[in-house]
Write a protein that binds this DNA or RNA. Structure first.
Lengths: 242, 242
DNA sequence: TTGACTTATATGTCTAGACATATAATCGTA
DNA sequence: TACGATTATATGTCTAGACATATAAGTCAA
C-alpha cells in the first residue's frame, strides 16, 4: 500500500523494483520460501508495464536470489552456503593493491618434451612441448609466494618465445590467452628444505598451497602450484559476490 | 551471412543468440577486447526485434562475459582470474556426497556473556549472550574436521535452546536462519597438541584452516573456525561456476 | 480414494515501436 | 596544435500489446 512510487527517482524503475525486492530478501523480511508478489501485482503497485517488472525479476532469478515457477509464482530461494566467491588475485595486483612494492624473480625456465609427470600434471595424453617455469614473488622485498608452473606449448605456442625474466607468467598469460576456465585446489603442507629456503621460513612451517589448473574448451593451458607462508597469508572468500 | 536462422529450433531465440556468442567467446574465436556485432546487426542477422538481442546481450553482460559501452558497442571481457567459485559445502553434505558415512560428536557447549575475546571474534561491541560450541566431524569413523563455533544469541535467540548433541550447528543454522552473508578466510597452521589429538594426526602436521564469519544485514550471526588435516583435505574452487 | 481429464493462470518469450543518454567522432576555432 | 562545441549513434529503458506453455487446481468418473 506504500505510495511514493510515481515520483521518478534517479535510478531506473526496474532497478528500483529489483532493489526493493532484494532488500526485503536480504533483511529477512521475505524469508526463503516466501512468495514474491505476482508480476501483475507489481505492475499495479509500480504502475508500469509487465516487461519492466519481468526484467527486474529475471535478473533476481539469474542471481539465484529467487526461483520462478510457472503458474505458481516467484519464491525466495534458500541461501546456498556451499558456494562462495573466492578472490584469487593475480599476485602482482594483489600485492600492489595492498600498497606494497612488488618484486619478481625468475628462478628457472626450461623447455622440454613433456615427461610422464608433466603429462599427468597437465592432464594431457600426447607428448608435446612444455615450458616449466619457477619463480618467486615478493612484497616489500620479503618472499610472498613461490610459483612452479607448466605451460602447454601446443595450446600456447607464443609462450615459447615469451620473456618471463621480467614479467610473471601469470600476468603474461592473462594478457595473451583468451577466456579460460580454471580449477583451484587448496591444501596445506609443511615446508620442506627447498621451500623453506625459497620463502625464508623455517623448515616445518605451515604453507598454504594453491594448485590451479587452467584450460579453454577442453584444451589444457597451464598448471601452476603456488606456495604461500601459511601463517602470514590469507585467502578471503566472500559469499554473494560482495 | 549464415542463414538457417528462420527455422525455429527447440531453445528460444534469445537463448540461441546468447549461446552463439558465448561459444565464440569460449572458443577464443572472439578474443578479449573483440567487438561483438552491434545490436542492429544481430537484429538483421537473426531477423528479430532489438529487445530480443538486447536480452541476450544483457544476460552476457550480467555474467561478466562481455562489457557494454554506450555508443561504442559491446566487447568481450578479459578473463578475470581473480574470482573463482569456491564450494564450501555443509560438512555433513560434503561427506555424504563422497559416499562416506558421516559421524558427529559434540565436544563441548557453553553459554556465557560474551568475553572481550568473544566480542572481538564476532565483531560486536555490546556484551550480549553467546553460545560456544566445539565439535568434531568424521567420515567413516576417521576424524575429518574439528569445529569451534560462537553464535551470537542476540541475533539467533533460538540457538539458546537448540540441541546440538545430534545435529551439527552448521546444519541447524542453515535451516533456522534466513539469508545471510559470509566471509571465509583460509590459512594454514601446524597442529598443536590439542588439535593433533582431536584430529588424530601428528603434532606439527599441516592443517587447513577456514574461518567463516556470517552475518545478515550488518548483524553478526556466527563465527566458526574449522580445522582440517591439510594433507588429506582439499578445497576445490572452480572458475566460472562449473 | 484414486486416477484421468480439463481449465485457469503465472511466467516465458517476443514485437514494433518510442524517447533518453552517454560518448566517440567530427568540426570549428583560438 | 590543442581545445571546445556539435553531432551522430549504440546502448538503456520502457510501453502495450500478443501468443506459448508449464502446471496448480479443480472436475469427474472408476
Amino acid at each position: 500500500m506504500s505510495l511514493s512510487t510515481e515520483t521518478a527517482d534517479k535510478p531506473t524503475l526496474y532497478k528500483r523494483i529489483r532493489a526493493d525486492i532484494e532488500k526485503r530478501i536480504l533483511t529477512g523480511e521475505w524469508p526463503p520460501g516466501h512468495r514474491i508478489p505476482f508480476e501483475h501485482e507489481l505492475v499495479a503497485r509500480y504502475g508500469c508495464s509487465r516487461m519492466t517488472v519481468n526484467k527486474a525479476l529475471s535478473e533476481l532469478a539469474q542471481a539465484d536470489l529467487i526461483e520462478r515457477r510457472r503458474r505458481a509464482g516467484s519464491f525466495v530461494r534458500r541461501p546456498q552456503h556451499q558456494s562462495a566467491v573466492l578472490k584469487i588475485a593475480d599476485i602482482r595486483a594483489e600485492i600492489t593493491a595492498l600498497g606494497r612494492s612488488y618484486g619478481y624473480e625468475l628462478i628457472g625456465r626450461k623447455q622440454r618434451t613433456a615427461t610422464a609427470a608433466d603429462r599427468e600434471r597437465l592432464g594431457v595424453k600426447k607428448a608435446g612441448k612444455v615450458v616449466a617455469i619457477s619463480c618467486r614473488h615478493s612484497a616489500d622485498n620479503v618472499p610472498f609466494a613461490v610459483e612452479d608452473r607448466l605451460i602447454d606449448l601446443s595450446s600456447v605456442p607464443s609462450a615459447a618465445t615469451a620473456d618471463f625474466s621480467n614479467e610473471p607468467p601469470g600476468s603474461w598469460l592473462l594478457h595473451h590467452v583468451p577466456w579460460t576456465e580454471a580449477e583451484h585446489t587448496i591444501s596445506a603442507i609443511v615446508a620442506d628444505d627447498r621451500t623453506a629456503e625459497a620463502l625464508d621460513i623455517a623448515v616445518g612451517a605451515p604453507c598454504l598451497v594453491i594448485d590451479r589448473y587452467t584450460w579453454r574448451s577442453a584444451r589444457t593451458i597451464t598448471a601452476v602450484r603456488l606456495l604461500y607462508p601459511g601463517d602470514s597469508h590469507r585467502l578471503v572468500a566472500r559469499f554473494k559476490g560482495g
